[in-house]
Design a protein around this nucleic acid. Structure first.
Lengths: 145, 145
DNA sequence: ACCTCCTGTAATTTTAAAATTTACACCATT
DNA sequence: AATGGTGTAAATTTTAAAATTACAGGAGGT
């Protein structure tokens, strides 16, 4: 029901892999230290990104590398890879409206009309930002701080 | 971190009040039955909508009525009334990235750049839908089902 | 004046979802 | 065969949301 923290962690990982992946072996343990979250969470995220073809991981010996040009990796693609149903999960809907009440009986379809439109707009918005933009933001930020 | 179910319940209540508010006294108990959620949740939602001037409630004797033209009640206004910080809560961010890592140190600012843009787009989208649209969807839906 | 039905809120408990931890099979390199 | 990695499953802990309980107070009917 929200843009998951996993998505933020995924972006963190991708930035890390892009910036340091050629110099050193990027393991789930290293990413776990950098993000401050659990290695298993990292492995699950990495696994999702891998299935989508965004990155590839050397089996056995370990280490993740980007497998795709920066401008083809949109936020939409990342969110979708992490959680395929993220759009429908974005909206919380009360599950048991009364079927005896005319409003209760129809409220789900009514909400769907609006929520679908908002979901589509959100996807467009997520589609418009790529890892290329994010890397460029990162380089700007990391000069100062 | 998501568009709350409270928001869906609020919309449900507003439709109910608009459609039946003149014929009968709409109490929190009635809305609780129609939505299938707890009277206290309803009262809290009603209270938030009241503070925003969307509805008014007769004190003591009870009963809620719309206090505002339909086309001035946007989804943005409803979400904001229910949860003023809903935009920033939309995005989950891992809270403890390593400050020793250049990516970890800057990831929050980097994410903010993109998330702010997405948050703005979402607000525009929510602003574009009003209760007038929703009532009209409701009337279409309730003919068939 | 008193009873009833309602609102407004605080405090607690329950429920459900997310994240962490633990555990272990399997692969590649040395 | 020892080491350091991945890939998952299962159990536990943590956290946030929703429901419940409880009660003080207002307005109207009798």
């Amino acid at each position: 029901m929200h843009i998951s923290t996993k998505c933020s962690i995924a972006i963190h990982c991708l930035v890390f892999i892009y910036e340091y992946g050629e110099k050193q072996k990027v393991t789930s343990n290293l990413l776990s230290l950098s993000t401050g979250s659990n290695p298993v969470i990292i492995r699950n995220i990495i696994s999702s990104l891998k299935k989508d073809g965004i990155i590839s991981v050397k089996f056995g010996t370990g280490g993740a590398t980007l497998d795709c040009p920066l401008n083809e990796i949109t936020l939409y693609r990342i969110c979708k890879a992490i959680e395929p149903e993220f759009v429908s999960k974005l909206f919380g809907i009360h599950s048991l409206p009364s079927q005896l009440c005319p409003v209760g009986k129809n409220i789900h379809s009514v909400l769907d009309c609006s929520y679908q439109k908002i979901g589509n707009d959100l996807c467009d918005s997520l589609e418009s930002i790529t890892l290329k933009d994010i890397i460029s933001d990162y380089r700007k930020c990391s000069i100062g701080g």
